[in-house]
Amino acid sequence: MTYTGPIKGLLLDLDGTLYHGTRMIPGADRLIGQLIEQNIPFRYVTNNSSLTPGAFADRLQGMGIPATAKEVCTSAEAAAAYIAKVKPRANVFVIGESGLRQAAEEAGLTIVEEGADFVVQGIDRELSYDKIAKAVEQLLGGAESILTNPDLLLPSEHGLRPGAGSIGAMIQAASGKVPTVIGKPSTILMNFALNSLGVSASQSWVVGDNLATDIAAGKAAGCGTVLVLTGLTTADNLESYAAKAGCRPDVICADLEALSSYITERNGQ
């Protein structure tokens, strides 16, 4: 990262960065208020494909964090946009929840049970053997495989649960098809979010709590990166996680208050 000017835009992770489940991380509301006050554009960027942007905005607002649907970029939206660009009006077989199905429809894709051009898969908490079998059938028949995000585990009220990547591993093992991955650390979601943001990568910063996804994605996209120690990564596990991820952030902030101070200092406010 060589850009030394002011921060012109931010791509913000959600879970572990701005909230834990349904609980706002202290300072998240003040951070977003600061960005709005200082006219710094931002987008909420999430690997979670289960909800629509509007639903994510409602969740944030319910915690007291300002948000609109247009400020949310999901792996579901990016996946649908990717498919629509490769093959407009493509037939897709969907394994996923409402966020992914709605994104596919809004992108002009046709959801089908057979004859699919693409199998697009995200988290599906109503997954069945029949769905897996149909997906594999489509892939063996020539459909291309799209994975919204590679997360093997996801946080829940009851601890960690299998994520979209775990489902994808089963489909890949059965079909032999390696999927195109959309979500972090892939640059596909990041470029989708940067296009929505309208700010160049070199002038944008990615903020997140996960070195292997958020920070790795920011690095790959050419953005500045800020690791906040508010979620997965802590001061105690930082070095081991950095070694596993093979990357380090440009800046480390202990919490969101420290991030707010860094933005103020960087931008000379």
Rank of each mutant, 00 (worst) to 15 (best):
K8F: 00
G9I: 02
L10N: 03
L12F: 09
L12E: 04
D13W: 03
D13F: 04
D15A: 09
G16W: 04
G16E: 06
Y19W: 10
Y19E: 00
H20L: 14
H20P: 00
H20M: 09
H20F: 10
H20V: 13
T22E: 11
R23I: 04
R23S: 04
M24F: 00
M24P: 06
P26D: 05
G27W: 05
G27S: 03
G27A: 05
A28D: 11
A28R: 04
G33T: 11
L35Y: 03
E37I: 01
N39S: 14
N39P: 01
I40S: 03
P41E: 02
R43D: 00
R43I: 02
R43P: 02
Y44Q: 11
V45C: 12
T46N: 12
T46M: 12
N47M: 06
N48I: 15
S49T: 08
S50H: 12
L51P: 00
L51S: 07
L51G: 01
T52K: 06
T52C: 03
T52N: 04
P53H: 07
A55Q: 15
A57K: 08
D58T: 10
D58H: 02
R59G: 00
R59L: 10
L60V: 10
L60K: 08
Q61R: 14
Q61P: 02
G62M: 07
P66Q: 12
P66Y: 12
P66T: 13
T68D: 14
T68E: 14
K70F: 01
V72G: 13
C73K: 11
E77H: 04
A79Y: 14
A80V: 14
A80S: 15
Y82V: 00
Y82G: 01
I83A: 06
A84K: 04
K85F: 10
V86R: 13
K87A: 05
K87D: 00
P88C: 09
A90L: 11
A90G: 08
N91G: 03
N91V: 03
N91M: 05
V92M: 13
V94K: 07
G96R: 06
G96K: 07
G99W: 11
L100T: 09
R101L: 11
Q102W: 01
A103Y: 03
A104D: 13
E105M: 13
E106S: 11
E106N: 06
G108W: 15
L109K: 10
L109T: 09
T110H: 09
T110S: 09
I111G: 05
I111C: 08
V112M: 02
V112I: 10
G115R: 15
G115K: 15
A116I: 01
D117V: 13
D117I: 13
F118A: 08
V119E: 06
V119A: 06
V119Y: 05
V120K: 13
V120C: 15
V120T: 15
V120Y: 14
Q121K: 03
G122M: 08
G122D: 09
D124R: 00
D124F: 01
R125L: 10
E126S: 13
L127A: 05
S128F: 03
Y129S: 00
Y129T: 00
D130Q: 15
D130L: 13
I132D: 02
I132W: 03
I132S: 05
A133S: 14
A135Q: 01
Q138P: 02
L139T: 04
